[in-house]
Computed example of a mutant assay.
Amino acid sequence: MSANPSPAEQLIALRDPRSPAAEAYRALRTNIQFSSLDRPLRTLLVTSTAPDEGKSTTLANLAVTMAQAEQRVLLVDCDLRRPSLHTLFGLPNEVGLTNLLLQESGDLPAQPTEVPGLLVLTSGPLPPRPADILGSRRMEEVIARLREAADVVLFDTPPVVAVTDAAVLATKVDGVLLVFRAGATRRDRAREARRRLEKVNANIVGVVLTDVQNDSTYDYYGS
């Protein structure tokens, strides 16, 4: 993978499904499924400790593999500060989550992708106080509606150490996945991310470590 991969290159599970990286994302999908046999995860939030650790790319590829396994997947961009899912999937972002939060009824503004079964709800216009919106009762109503529209709903959020958005939303979903980057994520930040999520009683289901070199076999390794 190039140092600065294009959006299309980052969706490796879609562009090169036979690659070791795509297989790692499928392994991640399987691990998540087996970690929640007694209590299936219908809503899953992904966050990191800092920008550029690969959380959005990880979540997008996980969504692709879940859809490829014939699940109805809804990918939601709750990073209302630096949204990126619309760029990864080449979608417009004029209408999205923030519009849905303002309307009481109407069609769900999720957009189809080239992956059958995978819909993306982009961020929409960025609000002045994202944490207040994500922690609102209206957001709980929206999440309930999203659960009805798919088998699994995946939420992308800002880094949990940087702002409170992820911790606020973590109280409203079934599970949280942390993304760390090998050689970049500081241990103190990793501990702080875990502490903040545990403080709100979030259900941390696991950690994904990106950019791991493993005997030249995997460029990405998810566990």
Rank of each mutant, 00 (worst) to 15 (best):
R39V: 09
V73A: 04
S35C: 11
D77L: 02
R195V: 00
V208W: 12
A149V: 14
L85N: 01
L91E: 03
P109E: 11
K55V: 08
P5G: 00
L154G: 10
A69R: 10
D188W: 03
D188T: 15
E148R: 15
L75S: 11
A3Y: 04
G117K: 04
R189H: 09
L146G: 09
N99C: 07
V163S: 07
A50W: 01
S48M: 11
S84L: 05
V163A: 05
N4Q: 08
P17A: 14
P92M: 03
Y218L: 05
L91R: 07
R191P: 01
L177M: 13
E114C: 10
D52M: 06
V205H: 10
L118Y: 04
S36P: 01
T171C: 12
E94Q: 15
L126G: 02
L75V: 14
S123R: 01
C78Q: 05
D107V: 02
P7V: 13
D107Q: 06
A182P: 04
V95R: 09
L154I: 09
R82F: 03
R145G: 14
V76P: 14
A167C: 10
R72D: 09
P7G: 02
L80P: 15
L97M: 06
E70Y: 01
N4M: 14
T164G: 00
L62F: 10
Y220E: 08
L146E: 01
T113W: 01
A60H: 08
V179C: 09
L101I: 13
E104Q: 12
N61D: 02
T47Q: 06
H86L: 14
N203I: 03
T210Y: 02
S123E: 07
L37N: 00
G175T: 07
V207L: 12
A69G: 10
R191M: 15
S36Q: 08
A110W: 03
P109K: 11
V120P: 07
L178S: 02
Q111R: 07
P40L: 14
G183I: 07
Q10E: 09
R187M: 08
V212E: 05
D52I: 02
I143G: 04
A150V: 12
E94M: 03
N31L: 05
T87L: 13
T65C: 09
S6D: 11
L74I: 15
V120Y: 06
L121S: 03
E23S: 07
E23D: 08
G96A: 01
S2Q: 11
Y220G: 06
A202W: 01
P5A: 04
V160N: 06
Y218A: 13
P17V: 13
P158D: 04
F89L: 03
T185D: 01
L41Q: 09
R186M: 08
A27L: 11
L41M: 12
R187W: 01
S56M: 04
M1T: 12
G54P: 14
Y221L: 12
R42E: 06
P130Y: 05
K172R: 15
F180Y: 14
R72G: 10
P116R: 15
S48Y: 04
A27I: 09
Q68K: 06
R147F: 00
V207W: 01
P7C: 07
A166Q: 04
S48I: 08
A110G: 13
E198W: 00
D151F: 07
A50G: 05
E192H: 12
Y25C: 08
G106I: 13
E94Y: 00
D188I: 11
L75H: 08
A110E: 10
T171M: 14
R26T: 08
G135E: 04
G90I: 09
G175I: 05
